[in-house]
Structures are given as C-alpha cells and as structure tokens.
Design a protein around this nucleic acid. Structure first.
Length: 500
DNA sequence: GGATCATGTCTCCCCATTCA
DNA sequence: TGAATGGGGAGACATGATCC
C-alpha cells in the first residue's frame, strides 16, 4: 500500500526548549528505548513539540502513522488541528489519513483496530496528559482500564511519546510504560505518600520556573482570599438550646469546625462573590490594555457553574457557560476562544489541556483540592500570547491545602524573588500586579450573611449551618471580609498579610 | 478520667465526561 | 439515554494527643 506523501513542513519558530526536547527525542528514540516522556509545565507548548517530532519521524521514515490519545474531545480536537498543520497530513483517522486522535474513553473499544494497525505499520503513539493512565508501583499490574489498554497497545507500536505537566496521580499509582527508580526517602519525605518512594524518571523536564524565565509562560500571581473576623452562630434545629456563637480568625480556622466544609463555603454567596469580585476587577484592569483578555471560573458542579454565571451576568459581565450538559458545548467553547468575550464558566471542560491563551484571570471555585488539579487549572492562564501579557492572576479561597499548593508553585522560583513584604492598609501606592492606575484592593467590607437568615438549615451533628439563600431566622454565619492575603512569587514566597 | 480534637484509613456516593 | 470510567469528597470508624 502506498502511503500519502509527507509534505514539506512550513517554517516553525520552535521555542528553545521545544528544539532541545525535539533533538533529544530524535536522538534517544530507538528500538532499545522506544518510550520518551516530556514533562513540561502546562502552557509551555508540548503539543507543538510533539507534532514536530511526529513530522520528523514521518519524514525520516521511522514511523508510518501517528496515534494521539487525549483526555477530552476538546483536547484531541486541538491536537488533531496542530498535527495536521505541522505535518501537512490528514490526522482525522479517516481514509487517507496518516494519523488519528482519540480519547482515552474510546481507546478500549478501538484497541483491536489499533493492534492491527501496529502489526502492519510502524506507529508513533502520543499519549497526552499521561496521568490519566495508572498502574501499581513496582509492577505493570494493577492498571486502570486505560492503563491496561496502553500496556496492550505498547506491544504493537514502534515509539511512544508521553506528555504531561503533572506526571503523577492523586491515588498514588504510577504511570504505565514509564521508568521509575527507587528513591532514597529522607526523614522529611516520610510524610509523603509511600508511592513517591519510586520516582519517575522523565526524559526531558521543562519547569514553570524555566518557562517564566524564558518568557514562554506568564508570571502567576495567586491571591488567597481570607477573612480575619468570621462569626458563626450555631442554633439547634429544634430550638431547645440558645444559639451559640463562635469566632474564627481565618478560613482555615473556620474549616476545622466539623459543621463547615470547604464545598459549603464555596457555595456561600459572600466568599463566592468576594473571589469573583476580585477577578472581575482584575480582568477589567487587564482589558484596558488588552481588550481580548479573558477570565475563567472553575466551578464545583454544573449547578454551581450556573449560579456563578448568573452572578456574573448580574454584574453586567459577558459570560459563556460551558459544561457537559450545555448543548453544542464544544462549539460554544470554540466561539469563546475566537471571540473577545470576557468570562467563561466551566466545571471540568476547561480544567486541563485546553488552550485559550487569552485567558489571564481565573477564579478557582472548584471543590477539588488536589495539587494536580490546581496546577492544571493554573496552566489554563499562564500561556503567553505576545510581549505585553507577562502576568496572570488566580483568585482562590484561602484553604490550607490550596495555600500549600500555591507555596509549592512559588518554591519553583528563584530565591531572589522570595522577599516577604507586609503591605499596610495606608500604603497609597498600587499593589504589585494592579498596574499604575488601579487602586489597592477594595476596602469595602462584605457581609457573609447580614439579614438574610436561613430557612433551610442543614443539621450537622446538632449544629445548624445557614446558607446564604435562606430567609427565616434560625442561624446565621456573619462576618466582615476585611482581611485579604495576597500571594505572589514576585514579592513573596510566603504569605504577605494585608491588613485592610 | 472523660470530653474534645486531630488525624488516618476505608468505603460509599456523587459528579463530570465520554461513548455506544 | 444509560452505562462506563475516573476522580474527589463526605462520612464512619479507630486511634492517639490534649485539655480540663
């Protein structure tokens, strides 16, 4: 069978890291070393590097076909586009194509076809967001369904290229096909998960620190929204005992209360509004210089996303809501990508792999508190477009785990940026990141629940915790949001407390 | 010594997403 | 539209530390 000819590749201005990774992969991939892992920070441009590698391997005659696997339809659609543009070949899996792009979900059902393809031709397998496949540490056994399929597929493809910015799994499992080495565990590491005693050996690593230094990614500013005067009023649902009041000096302190969960807090109007207000203000400032700058809100679930979209619309914002239940969600997302619409609200459809470089502000209101997810979401806003968009902003409720993740991100950066600066209220000069004309953080205090008092009371171990939508008087949570904590790698490795 | 709080583990449930 | 899948969180339970 005569395969379609490889077209000459257009001139591609590869970034330095992409060129280095490409060179290394081309030198390294061989029958003796058929697997290559590129661990590059989200937003660095892994897919373009992979597409050029695929093109070079096709041109050299080392492979005949390219298979791409990704986590969602949105991601594989972009991958197919990139592969086709770079190779000049159809990559849609149809008649005459030299490759195809598929979701991990569809891998199992298509496995026999892929095995047959691999038996007849030399295939390059690109598996993106590799952390979706897992296996037990120290063995290729105990794999999840996608991991099992990959292990079967591995036997009939020529080369594999794994791409991930976060090549680890929250459940402690390892990634199939890749190399792990037993690692010496220090005393400090003992608290880490035991699976980390085996350390992944990537073939090429490109960190967020390097990406920011090289101007590939924007400098991330992470703002942790907190409150130093939280008052919780607990009332027995049957009213047998008088209400009890407790005060909390911070959100982490509040969240230690057994009746208050992080997810509850996210749904409370005041913290939600506080986070969104910060995001709206920041985006408005950015859009003065870059009219196409966009904002992303990651919600906890679809209902939450709808509430957020309504809230933003109520503030006069132009909002695009995209969830798995939205008709033509992918078309809407594509339209958002190409428009200059201000906000997109989503749950999981824009959490990883999705490339919308004009996004520069994100409000993280997801219930998920894993480092992997946190970093993936940050990756949605750090992709640079040009010379004048060198910063991006993530607004988060000051929850202990999320705070720790923010600190770890800052730890990726050089020490000379680690200067603690406490900025008092009286400071008149603009805060870093707010530009030369924007004011300091808004000083208005926000009341969590002022007069609206809960009708529907959630009883938790005899304690009633009100919700913001309630209307009768049984319990209240009141507070004044007068204490914000700012966090930025540029001026602090630690929390800079702003006493407002 | 009892009450309370913190922590870790396990199981079950819910949710988002995709596919047939 | 229901099933499959991955994933996270809440709750139950056990254990140990701390407080009064």
């Amino acid at each position: 069978m005569k395969l379609p000819d490889i077209q000459s590749s257009p001139h591609l201005p590869l970034r330095d890291w992409q060129q280095r990774c490409l060179t290394q992969a081309l030198q390294q991939l061989s029958p003796f070393q058929p697997h290559f892992l590129c661990q590059a920070t989200p937003g660095a441009g892994k897919m373009l590097m992979a597409a050029v590698l695929a093109h070079q391997l096709l041109e050299r005659g080392d492979v005949d076909f390219v298979l791409y696997l990704g986590p969602s339809k949105e991601v594989i659609s972009r991958a197919e586009q990139t592969l086709a543009e770079v190779t000049g070949l159809m990559m849609n899996g149809k008649l005459g194509a030299r490759g195809g792009c598929y979701t991990y979900q569809s891998l199992w059902s298509r496995l026999p076809v892929f095995q047959q393809l691999g038996a007849q031709y030399r295939v390059l397998l690109i598996w993106d967001e590799s952390h979706h496949a897992g296996r037990l540490p120290g063995t290729q056994k105990g794999a999840n369904v996608w991991g099992q399929a990959l292990l079967i597929l591995e036997r009939c493809v020529t080369y594999t290229l794994a791409l991930s910015g976060t090549p680890w799994r929250t459940d402690g499992k390892c990634l199939p096909l890749l190399r792990y080495l037993d690692a010496q565990v220090s005393v400090d590491d003992e608290e880490d998960d035991s699976a980390l005693k085996q350390r992944l050996v990537p073939d090429f690593v490109y960190t967020l620190q390097e990406a920011v230094r090289d101007g590939v990614c924007r400098t991330p500013y992470i703002w942790l929204i907190d409150n130093s005067h939280i008052q919780l009023t607990m009332t027995h649902a049957k009213g047998k005992k008088p209400p009890k009041q407790k005060r909390f000096s911070s959100i982490p302190h509040l969240l230690r209360h057994p009746g208050i969960g992080y997810a509850d807090l996210l749904r409370h109007e005041a913290p939600m509004a506080r986070v969104l207000t910060q995001g709206v203000a920041k985006l408005a400032a950015l859009r003065q210089a870059q009219t196409s700058a966009g904002g992303l809100v990651v919600a906890s679930d679809i209902e939450h996303a709808e509430e957020i979209a309504e809230w933003l619309k109520g503030q006069g914002e132009d909002v695009c809501l995209v969830t798995s239940q939205t008709p033509n969600a992918h078309a809407k997302l594509q339209a958002f990508r190409e428009s200059s619409q201000a906000w997109v609200v989503a749950v999981g459809m824009i959490s990883e792999g999705v490339d919308i470089p004009r996004l520069r502000v994100c409000c993280y209101l997801s219930r998920i508190r894993t480092e992997q997810y946190f970093r993936q979401v940050l990756g949605r806003i750090i992709r640079r477009m040009g010379l004048h968009d060198d910063d991006c902003y993530l607004f988060v409720v000051n929850e202990s785990l999320l705070c720790r993740y923010a600190e770890r991100i800052a730890d990726d950066f050089p020490d000379d940026n680690a200067v603690v600066r406490v900025i008092p209220l009286e400071v008149a000069s603009p805060m870093p990141g707010y530009g030369n004309t924007s004011p300091v953080m808004p000083l208005d205090s926000v009341t969590l629940v002022e007069e609206a008092i809960p009708a529907s009371v959630t009883e938790v171990a005899g304690i009633a915790f009100g919700t913001s939508t309630a209307t009768t008087a049984t319990s209240t949570v009141s507070s004044q949001w007068e204490h914000d904590v700012a966090y930025s790698q540029r001026f602090s490795k630690h929390l800079a407390t702003l006493e407002l």
